[in-house]
């Protein structure tokens, strides 16, 4: 994907299908959070920030990386950001 604006929900669904994942409500919660955060800070959130914020918004039992990994087996940062159409941050990470 070239432009951030090109993203829409169908694209996310399609990308998830190619990874054998069906997007549930919980997935959309995370994806929407990722996009909101990106809009505010112009960068994808760190995994720690993500887990904490998810925990705050959707209940403590969801605020851990295990839950996020169960949603996105290839990593909430990596796969989640791809579905959300955000650039993956690069650096010493």
């Amino acid at each position: 994907m070239v432009n951030l604006g090109d993203w829409n929900k169908e694209i996310a669904v399609e990308m998830a299908q190619s990874d054998d994942i069906e997007l549930s409500e919980e997935h959309w919660d995370v994806i929407n959070f990722l996009r909101d955060y990106f809009e505010e800070y112009q960068i994808a959130p760190a995994v720690r920030v993500l887990t904490k914020a998810i925990g705050k918004q959707f209940g403590k039992e969801k605020g851990n990386s295990k839950y996020l990994y169960s949603l996105f087996p290839y990593g909430p940062g990596k796969q989640g950001c791809r579905f959300a159409g955000l650039p993956k941050p690069t650096g010493c990470i």
Binding site: E40, Y41, Q42, I43, P45, A46, V49, P89, T90, G91
Partner: peptide, 29 residues
């Protein structure tokens, strides 16, 4: 990899391209 990161380091100030508000938010957290 290197050139993209160097670009960010020179223009934004860090390799990841974390702008100041994001940095401040992370630290507060």
């Amino acid at each position: 990899y290197c050139n993209q990161i160097l670009g960010k380091a020179i223009t934004i100030g860090n390799n990841l391209g974390l702008p100041e508000p994001a940095l401040r938010d992370t630290l507060l957290d």
